Amino acid sequence: MPEQSPTRRPVAFAVFLVIAGAIGLLAAFELSLEKVLTLEDPTHVPSCNVGVLVGCSVNLASEQGSVFGFPNPFLGLMAWPAVIVVGMSLLAGARFARWYWLVFNAGLLFAFGLVCWLIQQSIYVLDVLCPWCMVTWAVTIPAFFAVTLYNLREGRFGGSERVRRIGGTLLKWVPLITVVAYAVVVILAQARMNAIPRVLIDLQNLFG
């Protein structure tokens, strides 16, 4: 992600937020829809059920799937539009106060923490990988790192000019940081669940 001058609109950053927000919203919508359909008809089989390892039913029916007393994807329906709005506003030339960025960052920190916990629960407790959940993980992780490092570069956490330069340098490495985070999840899933062969079997059964 290229570094932007403080006097210029952060176009690449803004476009990333819009795309990430749109993907996250799609995942939240699909999961919410499947949850509603399941509540209407307990025999409903979610379209995201691929096989024994890959599917949504277990996650949606679990306590972890409604950790705050309502289905987790409802949070996404409320939160991802905010990410899209921030991205679109930046493209339009908007400038936000420091407190606004800090609140936005705090929201993404909460989302990142929740995603990390849900990853741990999926791998070590539920023994299942939900496709749309994984899409949510895939966009939450880079969104958190991108916004945090962008705010660090812009000096919104305080700190010296050297700290801001470090933030700007790390911001360019968000794609690599994201890939490393994905790799950690894959390694954990493989070590605990023997995930890769099981996913291949599920896919073979689905398309075979």
Rank of each mutant, 00 (worst) to 15 (best):
P46S: 05
R162W: 12
R156Y: 14
S62N: 04
L108Q: 11
V83A: 11
N72L: 04
G155Y: 05
G65Y: 00
S66G: 05
A106R: 08
I84R: 12
L90V: 14
F96K: 14
V103F: 09
P142L: 04
C48S: 15
Q64P: 02
N59C: 01
F144G: 10
A61E: 07
Q121D: 09
P73F: 03
N151E: 15
I123G: 00
V139D: 08
V58I: 05
W99N: 14
L109K: 08
G55V: 05
L129A: 07
Q120K: 04
G113L: 08
W80A: 07
S57Y: 02
W132V: 04
L60I: 02
Y100G: 14
L118H: 01
L118M: 03
Y150Q: 15
L126P: 02
R95W: 09
Y100Q: 15
E161W: 03
F144C: 05
L149Y: 04
L114K: 00
G87Q: 11
S89V: 11
A97F: 14
I123E: 00
V83D: 07
L108P: 09
V128H: 04
L90H: 12
A143W: 11
C130Y: 00
Y150L: 10
V45K: 15
F145Y: 10
P73C: 01
P81R: 06
F144K: 08
G159R: 06
I123S: 00
I119R: 00
G107L: 07
M78L: 15
Y150F: 15
V115S: 06
V67Q: 03
L129I: 15
P46R: 06
A94C: 11
T136N: 02
I141H: 10
A82Y: 11
V67F: 03
V125D: 01
L152N: 10
F104I: 07
F112N: 05
G93N: 10
T148V: 10
L129S: 09
F104A: 08
L149F: 05
R165Y: 07
S160P: 06
G65D: 01
A94Q: 15
A94M: 14
G55M: 02
Y100C: 13
W117V: 01
R162D: 12
S160N: 08
E63T: 03
A146E: 12
P131K: 03
A111M: 08
R162E: 13
N49V: 04
G159P: 12
L77V: 06
C116G: 04
F157R: 08
E161F: 03
W137D: 08
C130L: 00
W99P: 08
V52N: 09
R156A: 05
F112Y: 06
W101L: 10
C130V: 06
L152C: 13
N151V: 14
